[in-house]
Design a protein around this nucleic acid. Structure first.
Lengths: 191, 191, 191, 191
DNA sequence: TGCTAAACGAGACGGTACGTCTTGTCTTGCT
DNA sequence: AGCAAGACAAGACGTACCGTCTCGTTTAGCA
């Protein structure tokens, strides 16, 4: 039985909007709960009632906006992998994501509980999509064995992350295709 | 002509030691310039005279400790790549690095000037090592073409980073070898 | 309607006590807001929320302790003036006051807004008391004219201040009486 | 015999000039030894070799500029006193003095050694001038007794200081004359 | 209809860190 | 040995956040 006043939905909306605005204006690090509360016209308690930290709040707002990777079915494993890699590139190189990802990853890495949620909601979901793709390919006989989805995923996501956030440059134009090729080869696919 | 009192070397030493201690105790985020100064018995001005931010300070301390990747020459491309990958895994999965890397990467990403230095001193150096390895392999006829060192590097570093800092897990035991295989295949090496 | 959490009174108390202690220990100049906050077990923000500077804070604490000059009515103008002068001497030669007054006066002089408050709460109040005394004397026929309270006040306070804080000495024993005489003469009182 | 390089006179000049400029620009409190050294193109050591503190430095510069009170001889005690009072008013209400005096007095009061020098070089000198005036008057038969120069001086300087630095206002126009009258009366002069 | 419990906005609270400034001393190489 | 330059340890400055707390008010479901 729920007693007391139910939580008002408008807080979630107002906070989400304020977070997106502030991220767009100055990026992740200078964003503070105080500023979000002020901008959203919301009490800080209302925010802390919903999220335990800035990272959680931003994460939930950003996740909510980033709707699920579409499975994609191009008919060939190479095509599916390239499509998925292209999707990841698009996702991470959007201006918002560029501003948010490194800081968010750092805060997540420093908070085990949040790390688990992040892994479950982001990494595992992408891995599942990839697993589906690999299974489909195995069904078509393109793969000799089921294939390690986690490894394949690391082989796609890792280099993209490296280009975007570690080497300070842009992912080169043909990257998704080349990554797809690398995964194919690594999994021993019949070309 | 150098005017004025020269900078005292003992500050660099004391700060480096204090930074290493504090990183070991509580990780990157809770480390503050105030605490470093207090622990090192050094004025804050002395720190700000040398580094413009906590990230720069930690970076220079950490970089100084992390001496250059040894080239390695196992006789085969696969062996060289696996050795390099193993080296990167060892470097990044050391307890210190685990505590420092995500936060440091975030601060670096937020500071373009520092990003450039980081790319030059870390990424480019590893790429150069890798380029040497690839050239050697091309000389032995193991590679049909010179090979894109940046791409190969992303293919090695990215997945390791992903396993360590994004998926919240451990790199699986055979990872260096599998990554070496993936690079070989992606570069079209004669097995 | 009062919005937000109301200010807690215990801060004012704790700060006042800490200020008095620290003034007693080392005087005005070495007193810092940091030390007051630490001693009082109070956040610096709580202090800056109430006062804009160390001078304001000390002033309000000191003023609060220094309750109003009693009017005094000895029956004669000379007696009233001497009593008032004696009161001022006692006030300013208390050990606390000696330690605080010069520094506080300097900071007040450097801050016009505070200068106005100080003049209103200290000087004007003493002048009002003196005005009352002069009026009473005029009523008794001791004075030919109402008398310039500001001038009379300067004639009392100024020499005391000079002895205490400018000439580095002690006010001579009979000073209040001699000052009373000087004021009498200056105002053309019938002796 | 003087060993070593003799002190360069240009430092005293350059410092004096820099101090006067900086006092004129921002007043006493924000003036710092660093700024003086930088403005004067002088090393800080050179300053500390000459003066033990900012207060001493400013004091010596200001004193040096303020050449000795002229004795004045108007023929009557009242005239002499009024002239002296007028001189003090002029001295203390010059824009430079207004900016410097309260802060300087505070620092002097906090440093006993300096307090003594200040009393000797300023107060005692003015008292001596006043003593001469009183002696002259006694010689002319205007005074029944030699007269307490210290008291008379406090009666002149104190009220002026009060008007200028304590009550936040201007000394009223006829002040020197009224003060002269007060002193006359207080000393029991034959009018 | 009234009662009660929780959510709400606002903002104060004790702390901590920031990056800058000032103080008085020390250390260079030049004069 | 004095000098200009400037590094040094210490610590204060005023601001910004943190995460918690206390107000007075509002909004619901339960009695």
């Amino acid at each position: 039985m729920n007693r007391g006043r139910p939580r008002s939905g408008h807080i979630d909306q107002a906070v989400a909007e304020a977070v997106r605005e502030l991220l767009g204006e100055h990026g992740y690090q200078p964003l503070s709960i105080d500023k979000v509360a002020a901008r959203a016209g919301v009490g800080k308690a209302g925010i802390y009632r919903r999220w335990r930290s800035k990272a959680e709040m931003v994460f939930s707002v950003v996740v909510h906006g980033t709707r699920l990777v579409p499975p994609a079915d191009t008919g060939t494993l190479r095509g599916d992998l390239a499509a998925l890699a292209g999707h990841i590139v698009a996702l991470l190189s959007a201006p918002d994501a560029r501003a948010v990802v490194p800081g968010l990853v750092a805060d997540i890495a420093a908070d085990p509980a949040l790390a688990e949620r992040f892994a479950a909601e982001f990494i595992d979901r992408e891995r599942a999509v990839l697993g589906e793709i690999l299974d489909r390919a195995a069904g078509r006989g393109e793969l000799p064995a089921p294939g390690d989805a986690a490894f394949a995923h690391a082989l796609l996501l890792g280099p993209i992350f490296t280009y975007l956030f570690l080497s300070g440059g842009e992912p080169p134009p043909g990257l998704p295709d080349r990554l797809a090729g690398a995964v194919l080869a690594a999994l021993g696919a019949k070309e």
